[in-house]
């Protein structure tokens, strides 16, 4: 039941927040911008289109978007969006991380499948970024496990309703996961989602050979992923309400819309980092997570 609502809410509303980000960016540069619902129109259009496959490709190309999409849905089932997570057990935090990795594995394979050097270039960069962002991600998870004394996403985000969110540890963690959000969703200082130059793309280069329905799945997945990371980050500051109600849904939307605006602002104000500098950015994020860990230790955590 709850799982059903969670999935439906997720599938219906996630593109909206992409719209909010785009709108914020347009507003900040003084443009009117696309309509707020543009992501929906894009998806609809893509799902109606015919498909073209590369002559080089193998079934991997078709399987990959489906695997990516289903792993993401699965990881949402582990996440307490409102109320308890539909599926939770001690240690699901690791499954959560590895489901994301599974999606990445297939995305990389699909990129290499078409035999294009641009896609290969994108895949190579994505693999590097992926490996290096694991560092911050797992230290972040470690801090969460330490300070909430639990290994399940469910109890991590629900641990104490009235926990003092503005402890330094959590703000540092928020910063870590916000940077991870930018990294994993190929957002601005790492990768420009609007770029049209193959040589500088990362994520876009990997999906150059997709079109139609498959591209629809990939774009849909990326909106879901963005939604997931935004929820993850914001739940660190404002934990989820315990029970499901309309109020909790509205509350959740406001929280996430807030982060979406934040992402929009960050994207408009920051210039893109040079490709060579990206690992340094990720290492800096790792340091941030490490700092959060040490602060959590020395201030006693729980």
């Amino acid at each position: 039941m709850l799982a059903g609502i969670q999935i439906i809410v997720l599938l219906t509303f996630s593109p909206l927040f992409v719209g909010i980000i785009t709108k914020t960016k347009a507003f900040l540069v003084g443009k009117k911008g696309q309509p707020l619902l543009q992501p929906y129109y894009d998806l609809l259009k893509l799902f109606k289109k015919d498909v073209v496959y590369s002559t080089t490709s193998s079934p991997v190309l078709k399987i990959a978007p489906l695997v990516g999409f289903s792993t993401l849905l699965m990881s949402f089932l582990l996440f307490p969006l409102f109320g308890k997570a539909p599926l939770h057990f001690e240690g699901d935090i690791i499954l959560f991380a590895y489901l994301l990795a599974l999606g990445r594995f297939w995305a990389l394979l699909a990129a290499l499948d078409v035999g294009s050097s641009f896609a290969g270039m994108g895949a190579s960069r994505e693999a590097t970024i992926g490996a290096l962002s694991e560092l911050a991600f797992f230290v972040g998870l470690g801090v969460l496990a330490y300070s909430s004394d639990s290994l399940s996403l469910d109890s991590i985000f629900l641990w104490k309703l009235g926990h003092s969110a503005w402890q330094p540890v959590f703000l540092l963690l928020f910063a870590t996961f916000f940077l991870l959000l930018l990294t994993e969703n190929s957002r601005m200082p790492i990768d420009d989602p609007n770029t049209h130059l193959e040589l500088t793309m990362i994520h876009e280069a990997m999906i150059l050979d997709y079109g139609g329905v498959e591209l629809g799945f990939i774009l849909y997945r990326s909106t879901l992923k963005l939604f997931l990371f935004m929820t993850f980050a914001v739940s660190l500051l404002w934990p989820t309400l315990l029970s499901f109600s309309l109020a909790s849904l509205v509350f959740l939307f406001f929280k996430i819309a807030g982060v979406a605006v934040g992402v929009g602002i960050v994207e408009s104000t920051l210039a893109r980092i040079r490709l060579l500098k990206i690992p340094q950015f990720l290492i800096a994020n790792f340091m941030l997570a490490l700092l959060a860990l040490l602060v959590a230790l020395s201030t006693g955590g729980n």
Binding site: D50, V51, Y53, T55, T56, S57, G115, L208
Partner: peptide, 12 residues
């Protein structure tokens, strides 16, 4: 009900 086509990989 969709047509599927094969085409060479995008080569810029």
């Amino acid at each position: 009900n969709k047509t599927k086509r094969l085409a060479p990989t995008w080569d810029c």
